[in-house]
Write a protein that binds this DNA or RNA. Sequence first.
DNA 1: CGGGGTCTTGAGGTGTTTCAACGTCGGTGG
DNA 2: CCACCGACGTTGAAACACCTCAAGACCCCG
Lengths: 254, 254
Amino acid sequence: MTNSEPAPLRPFLARLLRHSALDEVEQAAIMKLPGIVAEVGTHRDIVRLGDKVKHACLVLSGIVGRFSQDRVGRRQMAAIHLRGDMADLHSVVVPQATSTLQALSAATILHVPHGEIVTLARTYPAIADAFWRDCVVDAAIMAEWLTSMSLRSANSRTAHLFLEVAWRLGIAAGERPVSYDFPITQERLGELLGLTGVHVNRTLKALRTHEVLDFHHGKVSIIDWEKAAQLADFDPAYLEAASHRLPAGRSRRG
Amino acid sequence: MTNSEPAPLRPFLARLLRHSALDEVEQAAIMKLPGIVAEVGTHRDIVRLGDKVKHACLVLSGIVGRFSQDRVGRRQMAAIHLRGDMADLHSVVVPQATSTLQALSAATILHVPHGEIVTLARTYPAIADAFWRDCVVDAAIMAEWLTSMSLRSANSRTAHLFLEVAWRLGIAAGERPVSYDFPITQERLGELLGLTGVHVNRTLKALRTHEVLDFHHGKVSIIDWEKAAQLADFDPAYLEAASHRLPAGRSRRG
DNA sequence: CGGGGTCTTGAGGTGTTTCAACGTCGGTGG
DNA sequence: CCACCGACGTTGAAACACCTCAAGACCCCG
């Protein structure tokens, strides 16, 4: 079965186009990428640490996390992938997984063969650049997380995560109040934020009390974007630096 | 001036060859990369946040750090680059810097024009892959740092850093005691580790007392590699996953 | 011989963890 | 239809790792 959905690659192409200029031929080539669709249940591993994979995983729906684990079993997520993200595009050049990929909610995955991706990159240099750039953008996000971990408090860090996800989902700016589905437990939020489940709970309560944002029943509502952005010291520059259509001088939000 | 040193690109090529197979023609092409050599003093910025750069920075000597900063001025390093590392190879595809690059010690930098790098990548697909792979390896290191920040204690984290650097310098395994130059202040070590300078001091004292390792006058000595590796939960798999000459089934150290 | 940067040590404060108990909700079987 | 159960959420109290502030020692360089 190659592509049961109508146009599963559309969101992936959209993501690429956010940072890379591709002409119509190149876009058409991306849209023709074949793959196998798989439904993955919550908390199911998609790729395990050390696996040698032959496919990259495109997230069609749901939330996918990449994490590592220590001896005791405590986990820390290094990345989160949403609809349209190729969660392990990097596996094309490093097939042996250095971390585990897991579905944080029920998810739909399109497994795209490395061979097809390589062929595309070889044929169209602009696509090769786009893939490379995609990995670099993910790295920039991870660098921001690293900063977050050490420099921001639990409250600030939590707000920052929710703002980042809102931004990446494309539902930021302008229209308020912003809200979106984020079906994940507090325990797992803790693994994203480097906090215990218990403290995540206290943190969410504080953010709700101060009318910054609200997280309930797998739904995030950003009550006051300005207040949240200030608390989180959120500057989307790291998400937008690769934007090729960016109108030049733009950084701190107004 | 193009290349005053005898063979400044040799260590960079060596780094690429650790993870990518390149034939003689490709290797020769890398060695011919032109660039401008610059001496950079301690604590001098090489690239500033937001800069649009046209060159990538190859570290010929010294230590270079990539960091971000919050409003208060506290800093967190997201990466460290040693001799042979192209510190911002990613700038080829994302020229606008999302973090600052600074010399942590006196350093020598070779500025390589993006144009030359792109030409090479376009001409030799294997080189394009190698560059992409290089960025992915750096990302894997950053992911490990992220894990370190949240899962490991100050002692463990510090040991982990010194082991990683030893490994990356290629002076690991077998011969003990291992020692190498690492000319950096405790304050700046704190920015690498996400600790205050004061606590770095206490941490180093503890590690010295327990005869794990020693850091004095810009020199690291790993007194007991096994003990250090155990304390740090250090597994070099994340550094070796991309190794194309790896003898297959290898992960946890014995 | 003074001075600035770095290292060292102490005492007290704070954010987060740990442990533990209890509440709530949705599902499942009697 | 109610009793039960497990997963998840909520709250409290105490412990702990690390931070902050502060003072003094060391040491190289001018």
